[in-house]
Design a protein around this nucleic acid. Structure first.
Length: 513
RNA sequence: GUCCCGGUCGUCUAGUCCGGCCUAGGACCCCAGAUUUUCAUUCUGGUAACACGGGUUCGAAUCCCGUCCGGGAUACCA
């Protein structure tokens, strides 16, 4: 047999946002397509007209793009196998339905929902072990059909399921599985109004779009059986199926809004780096290797294989996701970090910073690179750079812990007033920021600078403290409090360097009062 | 109820197909220590698992059976 070009798809229904599970399904299909050198396409299953919305579609597309999952064919992209919206393919379903009807693989069902329900109850009462549709319309006479038509009933089209046939199927994840068709219903393919149902549209489209591999959630396993039978009835070869376990919450239950952000865009809006989210999601059921968790998309594609996906369900762990985010944040260069952070900074830092204080901003951000995991953490940590900070409880305590602290601050303010600290924002700091790279490392080589560098500030400070005759540690905490309003943050001498002379002098004086 | 799938540290997992290299490896979390002006980063070390019971075998996390537990399916949703 000639191996066809691999073609895989992600087929979301636009009835809600792209959630974690959907993102993973999309990713595995995408990765497999890329790994196999095939095509990845998007098909929109919008046949549930009551719940499908344009807004959901846009959210799903945006979520995929954000994760870096790109598609070769589909919405906004086109392709030779379209249209890629099922509601635009109704004529194709109609054609297939007519053929199936003519061949006897399908039949018209005139039952009303109430009649179906009644039939189901009856079967249950008989404890037949099967409680689906009672197949009343399977063998209607022409007269009976005419009578229903005369009543104005619009028939659904049902698939004529082979009775008690044992199927041996192979699933890329589950291996060989036996299923008896007696477990399956005569399922509805096409509604009276001409709109297809999932299993039917799916097969017609998988044939039409020449899909070769299907990776999807295990809730579709039995659908897969129904679909195989339909492929067979149509005389088409069915794709390889891979049914993957679901993603669960901490308690092992289905993931819900309570457990995690269900919309991928929420992660975007909170500043989770998309590569980190991608990386983390990939790990939910697949592993790169025995000893590495952090890898790029390209590295994933290079070793991804569908059968390597795990068989057991995995639980979503936000802690590890956050750790992963930190890993990525720390790998950015200062310039990359500035670019990534920009959207979160806008509205929180003065506009002029971006235009005229590039080097300074780079230095500011560099000080936080090992202190945040997601970009949304940034704005609340930066306020003290631009305005005198409000004192939090810990800082207030550091200020009053030693009764003499305020006199030290006054003395240090006076000392700094005569120092060669860089000027305070928004003055130009050319000559300081562009030669000094923060955060200052202990072993960093001394740089020649027109102003004091953080290490020069430290040397001076230590000498000053020695003259004061107190412990360095007890001096440093009140100073940090006065300058930043908290007891956490960048190294104190980076803080002094960033803040500049006037601000330091002013804040030390204010805190001493 | 019936059918299908699964079960390795608290979590994500490697190892399972092709039994011995596994006194079960990595990562997150947690704990301790080091560095240190705080926080963080980084580094070192530590706690912690083959669901249970049988069987096959010289030898089983790996193969077989049973039990228990978990998940999925059983729609004119997808």
């Amino acid at each position: 047999m000639i191996h066809p070009t691999p073609r895989l798809r992600f087929a979301p229904s636009p009835t809600g946002p792209l959630h974690l599970g959907g993102a993973r399904t999309a990713m595995y299909n995408w990765a497999a397509a890329r790994a196999l050198g095939g095509t990845f396409l998007l098909r929109i299953e919008d046949t549930d007209q009551a719940r499908s919305t344009e807004a959901s579609l846009q959210i799903i597309l945006a979520g995929l793009r954000w994760l870096g999952i790109d598609w070769d064919e589909g919405p906004e992209k086109g392709g030779d196998f379209g249209p890629y919206f099922q509601m635009q393919r109704l004529h194709l379903y109609r054609q297939a339905a007519d053929r199936l009807l003519a061949q006897g693989h399908a039949y018209r069902c005139y039952c009303t929902p109430d009649e179906i329900e009644a039939g189901r109850k009856e079967l249950e009462a008989q404890k037949a072990g099967f409680s689906g549709y009672n197949r009343r319309c399977r063998s209607l006479t022409a007269e009976q059909r005419a009578a229903f038509e005369a009543q104005g009933r619009k028939p659904n089209l049902r698939f004529r399921m082979p009775e008690a046939r044992v199927l041996q199927v192979h699933d890329l994840i589950r291996g060989d599985v036996e299923v008896n068709t007696k477990e399956l219903d005569d399922w509805v393919m096409l509604r009276g109004d001409g709109v297809p149902l999932y299993n039917f549209a799916c097969v017609i489209d998988d044939i039409g779009m020449k899909i070769t591999h299907v990776v999807r959630g295990e809730e579709h396993f039995l659908n897969g059986i129904k679909q195989r039978l339909l492929f067979e009835a149509l005389g088409a070869e069915c794709p390889l199926y891979a049914h993957i376990p679901l993603i669960l919450n901490k308690d092992g239950k289905k993931l819900s809004k309570r457990d995690a952000d269900t919309n991928m865009l929420d992660y975007r809006d909170k500043g989770f780096p998309p590569e980190a989210v991608f990386n983390y999601i990939a790990l939910l059921g697949w592993s790169f290797s025995g000893d590495r968790d952090v890898f790029t998309r390209e590295e994933m594609v290079a070793r991804f294989q569908i059968p390597d996906i795990g068989k057991s369900g995995s639980k979503f762990d936000e802690e590890k996701l956050r750790w992963m985010c930190g890993e990525y944040v720390r790998r950015w260069t200062p310039a990359q970090f500035v670019e990534r952070a920009r959207p979160w900074l806008q509205g929180h830092v003065p506009e002029a910073v971006f235009a005229s204080h590039g080097p300074w901003l780079r230095n500011v951000l560099a000080c936080f690179q090992e202190r945040i995991a997601i970009l949304g953490e940034l704005p609340p940590k930066l306020g003290w750079l631009f305005a005198a900070p409000a004192m939090d409880a810990a800082a207030a305590q550091n200020l009053t812990k030693d009764p003499a602290a305020k006199s030290w601050l006054t003395a240090y303010a006076t000392h700094l007033a005569g120092s060669n600290l860089p000027p305070s924002w928004p003055a130009s700091r050319a000559g300081a920021d562009d030669v000094v790279a923060l955060p200052s490392k202990k072993d960093a080589p001394e740089v020649a600078c027109a102003f004091w560098t953080p290490s020069a500030i430290e040397r001076d400070c230590r000498a000053f403290v020695e003259k004061l005759g107190i412990k360095f540690g007890s001096f440093v905490h009140p100073v940090r409090a006065a300058l930043t309003g908290t007891d956490k943050g960048p190294g104190l001498f980076d803080v002094l360097f960033l803040l500049g002379k006037d601000s330091c002098v002013q804040r030390l004086g204010a805190a001493a009062r």
